[in-house]
Simulated scan of single mutants.
Amino acid sequence: MSADKHPSLYEKYHLKPVINASGRMTMLGVSTPGPEVVVAVNEGLSHYFEMKDLVLKSGAYIAGLLGVEEAVVVSCASAGIAQSVAAVIVQESEHLLVNLHSAAHDRPCEIVLPKGHNVNYGAPVGTMVALGGGRVVEAGYANECSAAQLAAAITPRTAALLYVKSHHTVQKSMLTVAEAAEVAHHHQLPLIVDAAAEEDLTCYYQMGADLVIYSGAKALEGPSSGLVIGRAPYVGWVRRQSEGIGRAMKIGKEGILGLAQAIECYVQRTPVSGQQMVEKMTPFIDRLNGLPGIHARVVWDAAGRDIARTEIAFDEAALGVRTAEIVQRLREGEVAIYFRGYRANEGKVEVDVRSVTPAQLARIADAIATLREARP
C-alpha cells in the first residue's frame, strides 16, 4: 500500500471482506443504503435540531408518504416491539411511564401471540415483550392457531395481541393478520404486528393492525433504525416511551433523517421482482448443476414475499463432507461467504441474490467447486 493511500476499513480494523448471500441479516450489517440516504445521514450529523420536534415532524412526514395515521422512527424493530408493549401497558400514566421497571400495578400486561410465533429471530420475541413490561401468553399449538384459539387465550389481563410476520414463524395452519385484527377489535384490544423484514409498508395497517413494526435497515435499506406506524393514540403512546424505556433505545438525528429519506426512495422506486432475481441467478444455478454431488434450483420465499432464492443441495455421501462443514469452511475463507443456513441439517442451504453481484455469484461457485475438489 502506497504512503498516500488510506487503508480500507477492512485493512484498518483487520476485518475480513464478506459476500452476503444470506439476505438482509443483522449479523452482517443488514444492508447498504444508497447515496441519497448517505447524504441525508450526513446532513443530519452536520446540524442541530430540537429532537422532540424532529421526532414528531419526521413521523408526520413518513405517515403522509405512507397514508397512515401516525408514524415514529425508533432505533430498530426489536426496540419497536419493546416500546409498543410498554405503550399499550403504560398508555397515558405519567407515574408508570418512568416507573414501569419497579412500580406494582394492576394494569393488563399479558401479550397474547400464536405459539408458533414465539420465535428466536436473533433474540427471543419474549425478551422484547418482557423489556416492555409484558408477559407472553401463547395461543394455540406449535403447528396451528385459529382465530378461536387466539380468542380463547384472552383474559382481563390481556393488554394486546401480537402477530409476528416472518419466515422464522410456523406458516401452516395459522390465522391471518386480518383474522387476528378481527379478534383483537372484538375484544377491544390493539393488535401489534412485527413485520420487521416485510416489504409492504401498508398492507397490515390496512388489514386492521393498530401498530406495525418494520426494520429500517432491511427491505427499506436505511440506516440502523426501526419504524412504527399505526393509529392514534397508540403511536403517540410509543413516542412517549422516549421518556421511559425508550431512553435506552434512542435513535440519533442521523438515523431519523436517513430512514425518512430511505422510505421516500423506497415508495418511489420500482421493486426488483422475484422473476428478475431468477434471471440473475440462472447462470449461477447452471454452473452449480455441472458439479457432481451438487444440485441447485430456484425456491421462493417461505413467508410468501416475492423473493426468489437459489437452493443448493449437497450430496453429503458422495462429497464425503457434511453441509454444516461446507458452510463453515466458506465462512472461514479469505473472503467470508455467508448463506442462509437454516436447513443445513437437511443438506441444503439457500443463496439470497438481492445483495450479491453476478461477479460475487461466480466467486461463490468457484469456492464451492474448489471445496469439492479438495474433499477428503
Rank of each mutant, 00 (worst) to 15 (best):
I154R: 08
V164Q: 00
E279F: 08
T270P: 06
N120K: 01
L371P: 13
G333T: 12
M249R: 03
L65W: 13
S93M: 11
H168L: 10
Y342M: 11
G116L: 11
S2Q: 08
R331Q: 12
V41M: 14
I368T: 04
G23I: 10
L201I: 05
A40Q: 02
A3Y: 13
K348H: 02
L45A: 14
G134Q: 00
F49N: 08
M249P: 01
S93V: 14
A374P: 08
R297D: 07
R375M: 14
A139D: 06
E138V: 02
R354N: 12
G255A: 04
A197R: 07
A153V: 04
R287A: 15
G134N: 01
Y61K: 15
R331A: 12
R331C: 13
Y163C: 00
H95R: 03
S173Y: 13
S102T: 11
I192W: 00
A40W: 01
S224C: 06
I245H: 05
G44S: 07
V228Y: 01
V30Q: 02
A77M: 02
N42R: 07
I192H: 02
V125Q: 00
H295I: 10
K57V: 04
H295C: 04
A159T: 08
G134H: 02
S31M: 01
A142H: 09
L288R: 08
I154M: 13
L54E: 13
H295P: 01
